[in-house]
Computed example of a mutant assay.
Amino acid sequence: MEEYGIFLGFNNQAEAFRLPVNPETLEIKESGDGKSYTIIDLGEINTISYPKLTEITIESIFPAQRYPFVLVQEGGLKRPFEYVELIKKWMTTRRPIRFVFSGVSYADDTKKAEGKLNDAKKWLKQSSTSEDKSIEIDFGVNMAMSIEGFTWKLSAGTSGDIEYSLSLKKYVFYQAVAVKVVNDEVKVEKKRANETPKPTTYTLKSGDSLWKVAKEKLGDGKRCGEIQKLNGIKDSELRKLPIGKVIKLP
């Protein structure tokens, strides 16, 4: 059997979710940027240029209830407006998101019940040397993308379901580089682009908890898990956080 899934993530998967309902069609636009010219005694010719950035359009729904066609969700199904608010928040950061589209084949139908498709990272890391020979990766698309458009509507008679259309465009990382001139020779200092926002820091004080810090500094106490993961804090350390410890904030 085969199953396919689409994941959207932000900040190196610190925030991510799987689309609860796969779109009926996934429109992917690939086009070139060539130009045509008319030459005397030759006629029309065309030049081949670099291809334009990939564009993807997704149209589906965020369901208000667990229909038979709703896909398994890691951490449970969110409410429709939670998906909407998360996408809107990503747009305001003016940073790219991560688009993952992957498909797998199962040799045994019972694998589906084990939730093997919940983790997009695992799909893309699977290889021919994987110990789990019952899973075969059909394909995997993993690229940074910008959110170019997001429209949604709540229609009458849909039990609270939200219909949406999401437009994405491939994002190419770029940055200004330092240039030095040494003995009339131009040297460019290259640095690897980083899609992760630079974290701020906070110094723990008496009475602090990660929930309290997340509430005060990030505006949402539920983001305490992000702080814990970012700083590698063990569950056993949560009850007694060291005073004076400097932690990073997502």
Results as ranks from 00 to 15, higher is better:
R223K: 12
G34I: 01
N194D: 13
E3Q: 13
Y202V: 06
Q228Y: 06
N142Q: 03
K29R: 13
I56H: 02
W90P: 07
G219R: 12
G5T: 05
F62E: 05
D208I: 03
D235H: 12
E27T: 07
E82C: 09
G9Q: 05
P197Y: 03
K229R: 07
K205V: 08
E82P: 04
T203G: 03
F101Q: 04
V172I: 11
Q228H: 01
F101G: 11
I39D: 07
L204M: 06
I28M: 12
G43V: 06
T110C: 05
E82R: 09
K112C: 11
E185K: 15
L210V: 00
E2V: 15
L166M: 03
K215R: 14
T158Q: 02
E195K: 15
E148V: 13
K78G: 10
I40P: 15
G232T: 14
E136N: 15
I87H: 00
N11Y: 01
P68R: 09
K215C: 12
W90G: 01
G103D: 09
E163C: 06
K29A: 10
L8K: 03
F7L: 06
W152F: 13
V179R: 07
P68W: 05
T201L: 01
F150G: 01
K52P: 01
Q65P: 10
E44R: 09
K229F: 07
K153G: 15
K112V: 15
K88W: 00
P96C: 08
L117C: 04
V179Y: 03
Q228M: 13
K248H: 00
V179E: 02
L42M: 09
D119S: 01
K52S: 05
P242T: 01
S155F: 11
W90H: 13
T151I: 14
K35V: 04
G157H: 05
T47K: 06
G140D: 03
A144L: 15
T203Y: 08
V186H: 04
Y4K: 08
L71H: 10
N142C: 11
Q73T: 09
S36T: 14
S146P: 15
V246W: 08
G244F: 12
I227N: 09
L218W: 00
E55G: 03
I137V: 15
S105L: 13
N194Q: 14
Q228G: 10
V70N: 12
E136S: 15
T47G: 08
